[in-house]
């Protein structure tokens, strides 16, 4: 059995006096998708940002392919080049076209030649249903299209794992489907991913494991059916009941 792609052990993080992550342990095996669920402020986004070294952890360790990445001696740039991150608010570069957004990392970080990077970028955009939109700027695209460009940008460097931070939360409901379709497609290809999400039905469909976060701790972690249909912990039950009452399941 090879090492998990990502392994998180005893990770803590506080913003000032407020603990956001309170001893997180989590492992993600190759080709697996882990869904992080939990209320806003439970630490899902912070955990993803810590993994991509956008936020420094206070304590604990994170391993990528068995190597520790949270040690001060590790070059964070080299680590981020092996990971892909998709933001809730897309965060596309507004002064660049869709294609330029997708190839920037390849050209500047991976030092791939422009023609080759461009070709791969076009293929990726086409695959994500964006053929013909290569030269559009982000403000000419719908939210769903922008998020698919962002997915292409994150996936362009063939990362070891994709970190998806509530990628449909900023979208109009009718645009959610087209973005989830792309994630589904990537999962079928075997891309390892951690998905922070509010879409329970999507978590059930795509994830191999669902982890429920509450106040910076993983309270419950199991297969989607077990966590979502037969939660063992009172916090999980309460969270799912609230979602049910809000009509979100």
């Amino acid at each position: 059995m090879s090492a998990p792609v990502l392994e998180i052990t005893g990770v803590t993080k506080s913003f000032g006096d407020r603990p956001v992550l309170d001893g997180i342990d989590l492992a993600v095996d190759e080709h697996q998708a882990v869904a992080l669920i939990g209320a806003s402020g439970s630490g899902k986004s912070t955990l993803l940002r810590c993994i991509d070294l956008l936020v420094e952890i206070d304590d604990g360790d994170i391993f990528l392919d068995g190597e520790v990445i949270t040690d001060p001696s590790v070059d964070p740039v080299a680590v981020r080049r092996r990971l892909g991150f998709v933001f809730q608010a897309f965060n596309l570069f507004p002064h660049m076209t869709a294609l330029e957004n997708v190839v920037l990392g390849a050209v500047r970080a991976q030092k791939v030649g422009r023609p080759e990077a461009g070709e791969r970028g076009r293929d990726l955009l086409q695959r994500f249903g964006l053929a013909g939109r290569e030269d559009d700027r982000p403000d000419q695209l719908s939210g769903g299209q922008q998020q698919r460009v962002a997915l292409a940008r994150a996936f362009a460097g063939r990362p070891r794992a994709l970190l998806l931070d509530e990628v449909t939360s900023a979208l109009d409901p009718e645009l959610v489907g087209e973005v989830l379709e792309v994630v589904r497609d990537l999962k079928q290809e075997g891309v390892t991913m951690i998905i922070a999400t509010h879409e329970m039905s999507f978590a059930r469909e795509v994830a191999d494991t669902v982890a429920f976060l509450d106040q910076g701790r993983i309270v419950e972690r199991d297969t989607p059916d077990r966590v979502l249909d037969d939660p063992q912990q009172p916090e999980t039950r309460q969270f799912l009941r609230r979602l049910l009452e809000a009509g979100r399941v």
Binding site: R49, D52, L54, P76, V77, R80, R81, L83, G84, F85, F87, A89, N91, L92, F93, P94, H95, L104, G105, R108, A109, Q110, R153, A154, G157
Partner: peptide, 27 residues
Amino acid sequence: AQTDAALATGLTPLQALRFVVLPQAIR
């Protein structure tokens, strides 16, 4: 968020400044 996205794309902090932050700032 633009710097975060640039770093997540694998750019160095200096490249993030050069290719993402400064072009927008100067515009």
